[in-house]
Design a protein around this nucleic acid. Structure first.
Lengths: 113, 113
DNA sequence: TTATATACCTTGACAGGCGATGTATATTGT
DNA sequence: ACAATATACATCGCCTGTCAAGGTATATAA
């Protein structure tokens, strides 16, 4: 039942912050980048994406502003804040710890053959 | 905000199945094992544990039976089924994929210094 | 003029995890 | 004798992140 998407739960914000680290971007583009970066294996659902933006902005990890496009659909850009960078560093450190922990916990003694 | 426990979400069933792979056990003991195996860094909450047992049993991944203790509190033992072993193998394969995917998605271009 | 791509956003439901609480038995300390 | 602790089970209601579905609007290609 559990598909990959289920295991990514909790990493959405980290993924977004990593994409914003060096340049501001907007929802649609971020999601396309993630899709390509994942080799077409993963893509955020829009509701998940915008939910994460809201939480990150409330937490002061990102700031948003409207782009000045004169043509095409309007875009809301997001830029990462110093707090967001700190949060990203902490999240990645936590991920490294969690990875090790899960690897230990799912070890099992294989039956002798 | 996201603490380690949040990132373990979705792995509870895999962790339990790994612990049951070679020998049946019961809730309290499994949780103690996990606590020790994690070096005291992680422990399942009881509600989480028993909820996972229920789901795993409904899915046919484990079977339960009462122990025959003549003293002390009764124990409900769980043993893994062939279906559970299959599920475990699949979950671990999925975890390996997910690990790689997340590692790719949280990469970011570090600023030049 | 219809479809597709770009781009935003919200609502309601679901599922896993958690805090709190409850039950019962056995052992250890005072 | 009594309290505290450890063992061992289980449930209830809440919280939170995710998702399916739906909605709005602009520009371009068929």
């Amino acid at each position: 039942m559990a598909i990959t998407a289920d295991l990514i739960r909790g990493h959405t914000e980290t993924i977004i912050l990593a994409h914003l680290y060096n340049s501001a971007s907007y929802g649609y583009e971020i999601n396309k980048d993630i899709f390509e970066k994942s080799g077409g294996h993963y893509e955020l659902k829009e509701a998940t994406l915008y939910g994460a933006f809201r939480r990150l902005e409330e937490a002061g990890c990102i700031e948003s502003y409207w782009g000045d496009e004169t043509t095409g659909a309007r875009r809301r850009y997001y830029r990462i804040t110093p707090r967001g960078k700190q949060f990203l560093h902490d999240s990645i450190a936590e991920w490294e710890d969690t990875k090790k922990l899960i690897d230990i916990l799912i070890q099992f003694e294989r039956e002798k053959e």
